[in-house]
């Protein structure tokens, strides 16, 4: 399980890095969301209990030794919400600034040198 997770995390990081280095803004945004997924899986892999145990941590119904570590799940939940909100903002920003620049190429969308105009 850990090995599988490690491969998945590594693959996601590699893909995200590749996409982040592209010039179109849409790929950049997809890359950032993949990066968020990679980190979420990484945090999941950091659980302090056996990942295959899979017993939800309901206090009183499950003995503490059998529980899956609930903390990484809480962390991931928070991170998902945050990355969701920021991705939405980034998409809106990309649309607006793409409309202004008439392009989705980062080089054309990047700010002009401010002094020498």
């Amino acid at each position: 399980m850990s090995l599988f997770l490690a491969i998945a995390v590594g693959f996601l990081f590699a893909t995200a890095t590749y996409l982040l280095l592209r010039r179109t803004v849409v790929r950049l945004i997809i890359g950032l969301s993949l990066l968020a997924h990679a980190v979420n899986l990484l945090i999941f892999a950091m659980s302090r209990t056996d990942l295959r145990a899979g017993v939800p941590a309901f206090v009183g119904q499950v003995p503490p030794e059998a529980m899956t570590d609930p903390l990484p799940q809480a962390l991931i939940l928070t991170a998902i919400v945050i990355s969701f909100g920021i991705t939405a903002f980034l998409l809106a920003l990309a649309v607006r600034s793409g409309q202004a620049a008439q392009s989705d190429d980062m080089d054309l969308m990047s700010p002009p040198p401010p002094d020498e105009h």
Binding site: L35, M46, L75, S97, S110, P111
Partner: peptide, 27 residues
Amino acid sequence: LQAGIPYLVMNLMSSTMFLIACGLLYG
């Protein structure tokens, strides 16, 4: 709007690094 994208992306990268570090630190 145009300055927003580099600002946002760089700060997002930094937050991501922070989050990775948090996850590994917990592990």
